[in-house]
């Protein structure tokens, strides 16, 4: 998980999305413990309030939960939930940009389709 301090994306959002990626990739399995606020803060040299804000986003979305006295854990069903959420934004995040750039470069619909076919077979 990398934090880019020069990005226009706020750091708390990068923490939340970075953890989402890590949960989706299986780096943090369901019911496994995620790093503490102190660990996030120390590792990325960010104010604990920033790390907390990022992790709270995941708590609010039902992705992680707190076990009192133990720490934060990935909720059962979190992976499915994240997949649903990401699929929902897939069109917005990837397809719209792809079409816009294709139009700028005058790449045809058929050419994009061929590229996708080729990419899948790799």
């Amino acid at each position: 998980m990398q934090i880019n301090t020069n990005s226009d994306k706020p750091i708390f959002l990068q923490i939340a999305e970075g953890m989402e990626d890590a949960i989706l990739s299986g780096a943090f399995a369901e019911e496994s413990q995620i790093p503490s606020i102190t660990e996030f803060s120390v590792n990325y040299k960010i104010n604990p309030a920033t790390a907390l804000k990022g992790i709270n986003m995941l708590t609010d979305a039902g992705i992680v939960y707190k076990k009192r006295g133990l720490g934060m854990f990935v909720k059962t069903g979190a992976v499915e939930k994240l997949k649903d959420k990401r699929k929902h934004s897939f069109y917005q995040n990837f397809i719209e940009g792809l079409i816009a750039e294709a139009k700028r470069l005058q790449i045809s619909k058929a050419e994009i389709q061929a590229m996708i076919e080729g990419g899948f077979d790799k």
Binding site: I37, T38, S41, V42, K45, I46, N47, P48
Partner: peptide
């Protein structure tokens, strides 16, 4: 910086 944050956190 790490020590400071660890202590503060």
């Amino acid at each position: 910086y790490r020590l400071l944050l660890e202590k503060y956190s």
